[in-house]
Computed example of a mutant assay.
Amino acid sequence: MARWWAAVQHKPRPAPTPVPPTAPVTTPGVSEDRIHIVEKGDTWWGIAEEHGLSVPELLALNDAAVGDILDIGDRINVAPDPDPVPGAAVPDGQGGGGTLASLIAALLRAFRRT
C-alpha cells in the first residue's frame, strides 16, 4: 500500500492551459479618450482633477451622486457626449447626447459662458 501512495504523491501534474487574451471591452460610439477606467486608489475628486473637471460635473456625466462608490474596473465618463449637429433630428435611442448626464453637462457649459 505504501508504494501505491508514494506513486500517487509523485505523479507529475499537467502543465496549465494558457488562457488566450481577450479583446478590451469597448462601448460602441464612445471614444476611449472620454473614458477613465477606475484603478485602486481612484476617487471622484482625483479623477475630476486629473481631467480638468469639478466633482459635480464628473458626477453629472456619470449619473452619480455624492457618496456613490467607485469599483476597480468601472468605466467613468470624463468628457460629455459630443454635441449633435444643430437642427439635426436624432431618433429616440440613437444617441446624440440626449441622456440626462449630457443635458446637465450642456447646462453647466452654458452657465460657464455667462
Rank of each mutant, 00 (worst) to 15 (best):
R3F: 10
W4A: 11
W4S: 05
W5M: 09
A7P: 01
V8F: 03
H10N: 13
P12I: 01
P16L: 09
P16F: 04
P18S: 04
T22F: 00
T26W: 00
T26I: 14
P28N: 06
G29C: 08
S31W: 00
S31A: 15
E32N: 11
R34F: 04
H36P: 08
I37M: 06
K40N: 06
K40V: 14
G41W: 03
G41A: 05
T43H: 04
T43Y: 00
W45I: 03
I47E: 06
I47F: 04
H51E: 04
G52Y: 06
G52D: 03
L53P: 13
L58A: 13
L58M: 09
L59H: 03
L59A: 07
N62R: 13
N62W: 13
N62L: 11
D63R: 11
A64C: 11
D68E: 10
D68K: 02
D71L: 13
I72D: 13
I72E: 15
G73D: 10
R75K: 14
R75H: 14
V78D: 05
A79T: 11
P80D: 11
P80S: 13
P86Y: 02
P86N: 04
G87P: 08
G87A: 00
P91S: 07
G93T: 06
Q94G: 00
G96N: 05
G97I: 05
G98E: 03
T99G: 15
L100M: 02
L103Y: 07
A105F: 09
A106M: 04
A106P: 01
A106C: 02
L108F: 13
A110K: 12
A110Y: 05
R113Q: 15
T114A: 09
